[in-house]
């Protein structure tokens, strides 16, 4: 293993040790939420940042994942479904994604973006009205399997790590190159031998799978969902976009930085300002868009690269 990848493992190791350093449920809760949002940001980033297919409705996949576990427990499975519930939630979300992608990805432009937004609303209404299956607007409530937050911490940590690993691996291999080509120019991608419909669908499937798994984790962890929470456009769909944009779309660590900042800032504002906290969060986002147009990670790496080029040019001169 190269030295660079060893250094890359250091923060991972540090994150792994956190539950040994603190048992505070509040702090662990913050860390768990951060990791959950890292998964959501990274998943949106694969499709929106790298493949250039903007989704305004990823709550559809989050909600389907959450309801899959919720309905499993409601219909008599034991609440310790956390483990394979994650997998099943992801798969259910991928099935929904396969349908919408298969319909929309032959077209280009905003068809997908808008259809997936509509899809998430349709699913929310289904969840509200299909009482027998979903308990409707009342939502689904169960006692979570573990009382210790440490377990959840490691589960979501594993999910985030697998998510990051899969995306890194994909982006370094053929599909990753194809995703970028599709983002840059679809006509060109087609003429270079890329089945653009198929690869857009592949990107969506991976993205939806992890979003669904994150939704299933959310259900397991919180023990309560209702349609308004998990199919929420502002709180899930739009936040996934903002988290990615905040940190830097199409960057390796951008979504992680965005997710941590998002949790940190909304918590600080919530404690200090109370109910008006979303307003301040909005102001922060406007400031970031002005001063870091490519997100924090994206803008900083651009600046460093330019500086290095200038230094290189000076050294050559």
């Amino acid at each position: 293993m190269s030295r660079k990848s060893l250094i890359g493992l250091l923060p991972v190791a540090a994150v792994l040790l956190i539950p040994l350093l603190t048992q505070s449920p509040y702090l662990l809760h913050m860390f768990i939420l951060s990791l959950l949002w890292i998964v959501l940001g990274q998943s949106w980033n694969l499709l929106g940042g790298y493949t250039g297919q903007i989704s305004y409705g990823h709550a559809a996949f989050f909600g389907v994942g959450a309801y899959t576990t919720g309905i499993m427990v409601k219909s008599g499975q034991s609440p310790s479904t956390a483990w394979w519930g994650l997998l099943l939630g992801g798969l259910a979300a991928a099935v929904v994604a396969a349908f919408i992608g298969w319909v929309c990805f032959r077209l280009r432009g905003s068809y997908f973006s808008l259809s997936v937004l509509a899809l998430s609303e349709v699913l929310r209404l289904v969840a509200v009205n299909w009482n027998r299956l979903t308990n409707g607007a009342e939502g689904i409530l169960f006692i979570p399997a573990f009382t210790q937050k440490t377990y959840y911490y490691y589960i979501v940590f594993a999910l985030a790590a697998v998510n990051l690993g899969v995306i890194r691996w994909v982006m370094r291999s053929k599909p990753g190159y194809y995703f970028l080509a599709i983002r840059e120019d679809q006509d060109c991608a087609e003429s270079l031998g890329i089945d653009t419909t198929k690869y857009k669908l592949l990107s969506l499937l991976i993205s939806a799978f992890f979003t669904g798994a994150a939704g299933a984790f959310y259900m397991n962890y919180m023990g309560f969902i209702d349609p308004g929470i998990v199919f929420s456009i502002p709180d899930i769909s739009i936040m996934m976009i903002l988290v990615t944009m905040l940190g830097g779309a199409a960057t390796k660590w951008g979504p992680a930085v965005g997710a941590i900042l998002f949790i940190l800032v909304s918590e600080i504002f919530r404690v200090w300002v109370g109910s008006g906290h979303l307003l301040f969060f909005g102001v922060l986002i406007i400031a970031i868009i002005i001063y870091f147009p490519n997100g924090i990670v994206g803008t900083l790496t651009d600046r460093w690269a330019r500086k290095r080029r200038l230094q290189g040019a000076e050294a050559a001169a």
Binding site: R172, S173, K174, Y178, L180, E184, D185
Partner: peptide, 23 residues
């Protein structure tokens, strides 16, 4: 139609992938 944000080599690699699956 350059793939603008990709390097020249990555541009050409994208098309080379039409004949191989290996990076």
């Amino acid at each position: 139609k350059p793939l603008a944000r990709l390097s020249v080599l990555d541009n050409v690699m994208v098309s080379a992938f039409s004949r191989t699956n290996h990076r």
